[in-house]
Design a protein around this nucleic acid. Sequence first.
RNA 1: GGCGACGUGGCCAAGUGGUAAGGCGAGGGUCUGCAAAACCCUUAUUCGCCGGUUCGAAUCCGGCCGUCGCCUCCA
Length: 477
Amino acid sequence: MEAVKFYNSLGRRLETLEPLEPGHVRLYTCGPTVYDRVHIGNLRTFVFEDVLRRTLGFFGYRVTQAMNLTDVEDKIIAAALEAGVDIGAFTAPHVSSFFEDLAALRIERVEHYPRATGHIDEMIAMVEQLLEEGYAYRAGDSVFFRIAADEDYGKLSGIDLDQVRRGERVQSDEYGKEDARDFVLWKGAKEGEPQWASPWGPGRPGWHIECSAMSQRYLGKTFDIHCGGVDNLFPHHENEIAQSESANGSPLARYWLHSEHLTVEGDKMSKSLGNCYTLADLETRGLAARSVRYLLISVHYRQQLDFTFAKVAEADRALKRVDDMRFRLAHQTEQAGDKAPLEEAATGFEGAFVAALADDLNTSAALGAVFRFVHDVNGVIDRGLPFGARERVEGLLQRADQVLAVLDASAWNGDSGAAPDEEPGGLSDAEIERLVQSRSAARAARDFAAADRIRDQLAAAGVVVEDAPGGSRWKRS
RNA sequence: GGCGACGUGGCCAAGUGGUAAGGCGAGGGUCUGCAAAACCCUUAUUCGCCGGUUCGAAUCCGGCCGUCGCCUCCA
């Protein structure tokens, strides 16, 4: 099994992955708060986590992954209240659209999508344990985590709480805290808000306890990898560690991977700038989901990425290069010939691709390897395809695409990309074939006026004819 | 104030000690009846600036300049 290295935020260094159980990786990824449609920034993180998951599978690991859905939280409660529905009814459509977006970007389904509201008992149990062991205390109707009791607090983020700028004032519902830095584990019920019974009276869980309780339920007290966006590193992940490790006396996760944020056209995403694009927004603008995924994986996950429409268009053209090579490959006849050049290219590609992924998920380098291979194969096509070459090349591309999931255009059927301009009653393949053949006949008869008329007709229908040596071929643009 | 990241060709982006991947763009070429498309070739003696370590530095160290992130809403 390939040695895979990751940059571990806990310790801030590159480490070789050694799962607790050989060959099996347990992975927890912080999921969405389902109060709105997820935006392109959220999706970057989910795509990164998908590449991680696929890479582990590529290297032969079995993966058990849990991604939580936060379905009770301040914003949800406020919005549901305003809409006059309960939180379940409010979040349901957002849960659906979330899964639609994942599917649209070819993000694999994971094993578990636990919801906070379905795991209140587990959260209560963990809070009770923290209370018993002195890591938590009651104040009013609420329960807080006692940071002073946790010597390790800050080990993930490296934060020195004495240096932290103090908040201007304590939130009104957090009166009674021993220390302003303590965070809430259980919030006492407020009038009109969703609530659950607990040993401390009715209330609802704090945000951080959710992930601690649910990761333990599905992955165990200690699991292998925990992911999320960098913004969650502090306080969310720090607090998860504090809760879980204080309660269990064992490490929470051994490797912490954080993906960087993206900006949009040079600006930080914000509601006021109106640039918190959802995938639906992008599709409305005619951007293909496939190109969006390509752009998101074209930059290393720990680098900030500036998302621009121009870059999506560039991604489009880059992918076209792959499509064109596969098109040429499919239309070239195989013949007896030297297989060595292709084998050399194949070996180089495999080696570079695997090494790139094993090196902290270097997708930029992996894509670089793909394009070098495309170049090499083009050379092979020019010099004559040896028998078996098509299958060899396609096999390699498919294997790479197990991780990248962008190389095979046919897997993205229904992608909105060029669709908006297309006539609903376009030409069928058979009709196009007939036209192309009559054009070829016209050309053979040197009736170029007629040939050009047919070419124009096809172009109007969105079909490009290419006159290659040995005959004309066509494709929809 | 504390912690951290980044600055590589026109644009984007890999590369963390051994002599600059890849994509887009641009220029040239091949093919073609002409096109288009495609393919091929070319495009950084140099990696923000200054010093240092080293046989050797984009890569390590120090300083400076610039951009950005986090410090309890946030992927």
